[in-house]
Amino acid sequence: MSWFKREKKKIETTTARKELPGELWHKCPSCGDILYRKDLAARVSVCGNCGHHFRVGTDDYLELLLDQGSFRELDADLSSVDALGFVDSKSYAQRLEEYRERTRRNDAIVCGLGAIDDVEVSIGVMDFGFMGGSMGSVVGEKVARAIERAIERRIPLVIVSASGGARMQEGVLSLMQMGKTSTLLAELATNGLPFIAVDTDPTTGGVTASYAMLGDVIYAEPHAQIGFAGPRVIKQTIGEDLPDEFQTAEFLLEHGFVDAVVPRDRLKRIISRTLRWMLGREALAEEE
C-alpha cells in the first residue's frame, strides 16, 4: 500500500496555470507569489511577500552566519562505513556512494571553526540533502569533535540542525549517537561554555531528542517543522487529525520549547548578540 497515494481529486482551477521559466522565477509555495530568483537570493531565500522561508543548504548557512572568509572546515574526511552490512532496496554502501556523488560531501554535517562578528565559534551545520540529514556514526562523531573543539579552545558552540532523525541503516549505533553527543554536551556545560542550537526545517527524531533541544538558547526559523515523532506516526497512533501549526517553530515557542523564532535575515545578528551577552563582550553598535 502506498502511503502517498492521492485519494482525493486535485483542486481544479479554471484559470490557466502560470508557466515559469524555472531559472529566472520561483513560485512561493505558501502565498503563490512569483519571485524573481535574484531577489529571492538577496533575501536569503525568504519570500518578500509572505515571509515563507525556503529551505537552504549548508553552504548558505555558513555564508549567512559566519564572517566572510573566516570558515575553516575540519573533519571533512570522516565518512560512514557500512558496519551492519545493511541492505534494503539497495545496500547502505551504495546509498552512501550515491549521496556522496550527489552532494559532494562525505556525510550529513559540515563542521569547523569560524567567526560570528569576530567571536570565534566551533560550528556544525547539518545537510538535509544528505540522506535526509540523518544522524549516523559520522554525524555523531563530528558533533562530538565540534564539542571537544569548543572545550579545548574555550569557545562557544553553534549547531544548525536539519534532520529527519536517526539513520536506520546504522541500527543501534545511530541511536547511541544521541547518547554520545549529549554526554559531551554535559561536559561542555560543566565548562561553562555557550551552546546555541539553531533548529531549521525540518528538525525531528533523534536529533531533536538530543543536541537540537539542548542549547543554552534554542532559536528556530519561522515555520520550521520541529518535533520528536513524525506527524504520520502520531496521526496513526491517535487516529485523529493533528491541530494546525502542530510541530511548527511557533507551536514550540507557544509551548515553551524554543527561546525565540528568528527570521533568517536576523539570525546572525541575534546569535552574535547572544554570544556577546553570554561571554560578557562589548555589544555591537545597534543597527540602523
Partner: peptide
C-alpha cells in the same frame, strides 16, 4: 507519539535526560 507528548516536549525531556 501523541499530541500532548509533543506539546509537553517529548524530545526535550529525553534530550535533557541524556545529558
Amino acid at each position: 507519539p501523541g499530541i500532548g507528548a509533543e506539546e509537553r516536549g517529548q524530545a526535550e525531556a529525553i534530550a535533557y535526560n541524556l545529558r
